[in-house]
Design a binder for these strands. Structure first.
Length: 860
RNA sequence: GCCCGGAUGGCGGAACGGUAGACGCUCCAGACUUAAAAUUUGGUUUCCGAAAGGAAGUGCGGGUUCGAGUCCCGCUCCGGGCACCA
């Protein structure tokens, strides 16, 4: 079964065992539901043209170790991989070459698959998924269809980030510093019709769910900040001109209402034209124009200085009847709250800055402590200047004052409690070819009603419509039976440039005769097919963003070929959600938030049992180049997995990646460091293989281990197991090195000990471990042998080195038996020659004795 | 500006509040070899010392403690995230 080589020929060994695993389907997951399950998931890669980056095998090796460890612990392990294969680079490549993005994507996947297989990962390759496969995205479309039917998807004409270079719309989070995250192109605001998912409907649950997740705190905090829940009140300010009605504002500090000296509305606020008086007309117009022309880059750059213009109108402060001027300023955003605020310069630094700039009055309504000489006072303190004949907040702390004034406002119907979120609805459409087509057609109102009059055609909870050229169009979801809706072939991948995808340029696909019950379609250029129900329809030309396919892929692995469901009910119940999810921290908000949203929705539908998709999450740290800088082609500091494997083998690469430092840490790649683990593997080989290639003669069933080896065996089993469970692979490896160093010095070692160590090594360096296991006559695969156990009783030392301290300074040590009483320990210390000079003539004030560790004598 | 995380030998990094520097890299010296590589033995925080040993030492300044890399307070620097969210 083993190879024939006499020395550590890692190429031969690794190729041999990889083909063994493949032939024997060693890591094929069974659906034997009698065994405990363990589902360990990697973030599946986007198969880029540049191949695997060294960061991929880092996280993937970690999960592979865990997977192999769980196999050995008798678990039914699910450890799958797949491809997040829709994406912009493939489309850009298609635009450039004219070749179908599928071809490029397939070639890249082939390369990725080859590279991952060369790393010897224990994936169940029969469960591979590919987000671009129609059998896969059928279910992405199915989930979207459900979202649509449940009123969680809608279209909206909204200002979005338009990138003229990419000729597409980008989501807020895809725009970094006023440029596209992909390609770093300039972007601008444009109003376009877009599909939007109502993720804000889940804001509270997305926030609340975080607290029970075993995730890095930093990631939880980032999601928390992103969701951005804040409690406050909406308050109505009557406008001075009663004909104009009232202005609704949101504040988190209703307690400071008495300190409101002016108000601000966003430049885009719908009331601006009405509020603007004739005298101010020109100034307001000019200001609005400047604000609209500002790119976000400028807006953030100019964040320091506040600007604004007086509208000419005033409002009445509901608590004291004061006239307050209404200003227009771009430090208030239309997209948050009501797009209007009451400004309280005494308690808000932004308002303070603005008031100073425009010489507006400032009233403090919270008493700052004596000696406070800053601007706005935002801390807690007693309220002042906050009373009218009906209510007084004076003397109350912030929380109590908020409560009191809110009750008062609600009683007078002047305002109400309100919770606001920073989280916005999710912009879900892209003007691209290479994405999932929306399973949606647009029909006119009359046809919509005709279609819905058929009992087979389900009516969405909330109709989705839009108006164009004076006509209203309504969205109809394709029936489930018509899924998947495939991508049509196109002649050009070039976007139309007017905000529509290349799909809009295929008349026979986009304009159709449509049958709302069956979802069948025929080109509108042809004759209307026979039958009463055929209506004219226009397909949705947008496609879904790349996040769509990655929102639910972990569910498809459970049952990847199922033609009639996301996964079989029984399998969903058995496998549930991943027990461990490992991937980069760059997905802390986007992917992980979107996937949680979809999962919660699927939970509501009854598709999945658990409310959260990823109970335990871990981020592997970034591997930097040798120079300590981020790896990049331009810096020329990129480590290539292929060449490392060629030189040292996969086992050495895997071991080194794990030995580099803590998994979560950012750490530099050191090409010389790999020599160390390579030597270690060679040393293991030499200890296990004799000159004839058979088992090393010093290992025998008859041999007795030295007490040191015996103890170290148990110690190592304990440490390696504990470390794997805690994902501390670097210290697990040093423990194995310690063990092998001891092995090397031992004259003989028992077969049992030797085999147990191989099992510990197997998750880390599986090829070498399998090889040595086989050479010692054990049946493969080593990953099926039950994980060795340690005896805690063997870990207890009979003797321990007791350290003597005088006044906290180490002055000597001595080997003593473990249960030594304190009096004897003190005796030993007094007799110790090195302690004599420090104890002579001194009286011992205090004795601290930690048995087996330390004896500290405090003298004067 | 706000919120996190980090700082330990020449380097990557170890250290339940209990001998700081495990393990590995680098470097030095010895063995083996005609020689080199590989292997192997020993050394490798700094300073004083021939040695025994002593002193200092975990970014900086304080504190708690018999004892602090570890806990607390105040800084510096580096990295990451957010950024007018009312």
């Amino acid at each position: 079964m083993a190879t024939e080589c006499k020395d550590y020929s890692f190429q031969k060994i690794e190729a041999h065992w990889q083909s063994f695993w493949e032939t024997n389907q060693t890591f094929r997951t069974s659906d034997d539901r009698s065994r405990p399950k363990y589902y360990v998931l990697d973030m599946f890669p986007y198969p880029s043209g540049t191949g695997l980056h060294i960061g991929h095998p880092e996280g993937y090796t970690a999960t592979d170790i865990v997977a192999r460890y769980r196999w050995a612990r008798g678990c039914n392990v699910l450890h799958p991989i797949g491809w997040d294969a829709f994406g912009l680079p493939a489309e850009q490549h298609a635009v450039k070459t004219g070749a179908h993005p599928r071809l490029n994507t397939e070639a890249n996947i082939k390369n990725f698959r080859r590279q991952l297989k060369a790393l010897g990962f224990s994936y169940d390759w029969s469960r591979e998924v590919n987000t671009t496969d129609p059998d896969y995205f059928k279910w992405t479309q199915w989930i979207f269809r459900q979202l649509f039917q449940h009123g969680l998807a809608y279209v909206d004409e909204r200002p979005v980030w338009w990138c003229s270079e990419l000729k597409t719309v980008l989501a807020n989070e895809e725009v970094v510093d006023g440029r596209s995250e992909v390609g770093h192109h300039p972007v601008e605001r444009r109003n376009l019709r877009q599909w939007v998912l109502r993720i804000t409907a889940y804001a509270d649950r997305l926030l609340a769910g975080l607290k029970d997740l075993d995730w890095p705190d930093s990631t939880k905090r980032m999601q928390e900040a992103w969701i951005g829940r804040s409690e406050g009140a909406e308050v109505l300010f009557q406008l001075e001109d009663p004909a104009l009605g009232s202005l609704r504002i949101f504040t988190t500090r209703p307690d400071t209402l008495f300190g409101c000296t002016y108000m601000v509305v966003a430049p885009e606020h719908p009331l601006v034209p009405a509020l603007t008086t004739a005298v101010q007309q020109e100034a307001v117009e000019a200001y609005r124009k400047t604000a609209s022309r500002k790119s976000d880059l400028e807006r953030t750059d100019l964040a320091k200085e506040k600007s604004g213009v007086f509208s000419g109108s005033c409002a009445i402060n509901p608590v004291n009847g004061q006239r307050v001027p209404i200003w227009i300023a771009d430090y208030v955003l239309m997209g948050y709250g009501t797009g209007a605020i009451m400004a309280v310069p005494g308690q808000d630094q932004r308002d303070w800055d603005f008031a100073k700039a425009y010489a507006l009055p400032i009233i403090r309504t919270v008493q700052p402590p004596a000696g406070f000489n800053g601007g706005a006072f935002v801390e807690d303190g007693p309220a002042i200047n906050s009373a009218n004949p009906e209510i007084s907040l004076d003397g109350l702390g912030v929380a109590a004052a908020k409560e009191k004034i809110t009750i008062w406002l609600e009683g007078k119907r002047l305002g109400e409690r309100k919770v606001n979120f920073k989280l916005r609805d999710w912009l879900f459409s892209r003007q691209r070819y290479w994405g999932e087509p929306f399973p949606i057609v647009w029909v006119d109102e009359a046809d919509y009603e005709r279609a819905l009059s058929c009992p087979e055609v389900a009516r969405p909870k909330v109709p989705v419509t839009f108006r164009r050229d004076g006509r209203t169009f309504c969205a109809l979801a394709l029936p489930e039976g018509a899924l998947p809706l495939r991508l049509p072939e196109v002649t050009s991948y070039q976007p139309t440039g007017n905000g529509e995808s290349p799909l809009a340029a295929i008349p026979d696909w986009i304009d159709v005769w449509y049958h709302p019950v069956t979802g069948e379609a025929a080109p509108a250029s042809g004759p209307r097919p026979e039958g009463p129900l055929w209506i004219r329809a226009k397909r949705e030309s947008n496609t879904m963003p790349q996040w769509a396919g990655s929102c639910w892929y972990y569910l498809r692995y459970l049952d990847p070929r199922n033609p009639s469901a996301i996964s079989d009910r029984k399998l969903l119940d058995y496998w549930g959600v991943p027990d461990l999810y490992v991937g980069g921290a760059e997905h802390a908000v986007l992917h992980l938030l979107y996937a949680r949203f979809w999962h919660m929705f699927l939970h509501d539908l009854g598709v999945v049992r658990e409310p959260e998709p990823f109970r335990k999450l871990f981020h592997q740290g970034i591997i930097l180049g040798e120079d300590g800088e981020k790896m990049s082609k331009s810096r020329g500091n990129v480590a290539n997995p292929d060449s490392v494997i060629g030189e040292y083998g996969t086992d050495a690469l895997r071991l080194y990646l794990m030995f580099l430092g803590p998994l979560e840490a950012m750490k530099p790649w050191n090409p010389r460091g790999i020599e160390g683990v390579f030597r270690f593997l060679n040393k293991v080989w030499r200890e296990y293989v004799g000159e004839d290639g058979g088992p090393h003669p010093k290992i025998s069933a008859a041999a007795t281990d030295t007490p040191e080896i015996e103890r170290l065996r148990h110690e190592t089993i304990r440490k390696v197991g504990d470390d794997i469970e805690a994902l501390r692979f670097n210290t697990a490896i040093s423990q194995m090195m310690i063990f092998v160093n001891a092995l090397q010095k031992a004259p003989a070692v028992s077969r049992g000990t030797a085999l147990a160590f191989l099992q510990l090594l197997a998750p880390f360096a599986p090829h070498l471990a399998e090889e040595l296991w086989a050479r010692h006559g054990e049946p493969p695969s080593i990953s099926r042998a039950p994980w060795p156990v340690y005896d805690p009783a063997r870990l207890v030392l009979e003797q321990a080195k007791l350290v003597f301290q005088v006044n906290g300074k180490v002055r000597g040590d001595q080997l003593v038996r473990v249960g030594l009483p304190q009096s004897d320990a003190v005796e030993f210390a007094r007799a110790h020659p090195r302690l004599k000079p420090y104890l002579e003539g001194k009286s011992v004030k205090k004795i601290i004795y930690v048995p087996g560790r330390i004896l500290n004598l405090v003298v004067d």
